[in-house]
Design a protein around this nucleic acid. Structure first.
Length: 268
DNA sequence: ATGGTCGCTTGGCGA
């Protein structure tokens, strides 16, 4: 088995203990982390190496955003991408030497802008930025074309399917579930023939959430969640994908992130 | 329509 995970930790330093628990309980081979909220000079490299993840690539900034890939197996040729002319630490990718028949994978880790509150790009620059970010990324992937051995994971901040939100009717005008966002995400998915590994392995009608607001009194009982975190794969990896887990238990740990990790396993 | 809670940083923004 080879496994890959994505987790928006909402501050890596605040979530170090939780990451250690995750490393103990699930131990994915490679983990994509978003919202690390730490500058590179303060990245907790030694602590994460001690969890079994000595291979690390990251790009961070003060207080906001930040993405990292940490791995049990070697990472090569890391690159940081900037979209919409902003160096805001939302996209990093690297080669992952799996040491299996899967070979060296290209793993992309994304933190798509959340987009603010008002679902109108003319009135809300944050929403315009979100759509432009996805459009630029789509053009880049279309130019690169479809390929093998690829993973694109992260907090995409869009829940595309009706079963990706607690109420399709109540949220269809709410950012993360608007039609225009879903159209943008669909275009991104088509740009390089990405396959949503989680929905490949689960029925499209099964409610699946990866995020629950901090503001709910009892997040699990109320269960007003959304599936914002995704792990997409190229067709060859889709054929090898064997299991998808949303690790809800992490949402109940002490000092939880508001996002749960998503893990996909591949037969090797 | 509003507020509810976090994290970073110490006032207020972003989510």
């Amino acid at each position: 088995m080879f496994s890959a995970a994505t987790w928006n930790v909402n501050s890596l330093r605040r979530r170090l203990e939780a990451l250690a628990w995750f490393a103990d309980e699930i131990a994915p081979d490679v983990i994509c982390l978003q919202e690390t909220k730490v500058i590179d000079g303060l990245f907790p490299a030694a602590a994460i190496a001690a969890m079994g993840y000595p291979h690390q690539v990251f790009t961070g900034m003060k207080a906001y955003n930040g993405v990292a890939i940490v791995s049990k197996v070697p990472l090569i040729n890391p690159e940081v991408k900037s979209w919409c002319d902003r160096d805001d630490a939302r996209h990093i990718f690297a080669g992952v030497e799996t040491g299996t028949r899967l070979g060296c994978l290209e793993v992309h880790n994304l933190y798509v802008p959340a987009g603010g509150q008002i679902a109108d790009p003319l009135k809300n620059p944050k929403f315009a930025h979100k759509l432009a970010f996805i459009t630029e990324l789509t053009h880049w992937w279309a130019a690169r074309g479809a390929g093998a051995g690829r993973i694109m994971a992260g907090d995409f901040n869009i829940a595309p399917l009706a079963a990706d939100v607690w109420s399709h009717e109540r949220l269809r005008r709410t950012i993360t579930h608007t039609e225009i966002e879903i159209i943008h995400l669909d275009a991104l998915q088509r740009s390089a023939r990405w396959i949503d590994a989680v929905r490949l392995l689960r029925p499209e009608t099964e409610p699946l959430f990866t995020w629950w607001s901090y503001r709910a009194d009892d997040w699990e009982a109320v269960n007003k969640g959304r599936r914002l975190d995704h792990l997409w794969v190229s067709e060859d990896l889709a054929r090898a994908a064997s299991e998808a887990i949303i690790f809800k238990a992490a949402r109940d740990w002490q000092l939880p992130s508001d996002h749960a990790p998503v893990i996909v396993s591949f037969s090797v």
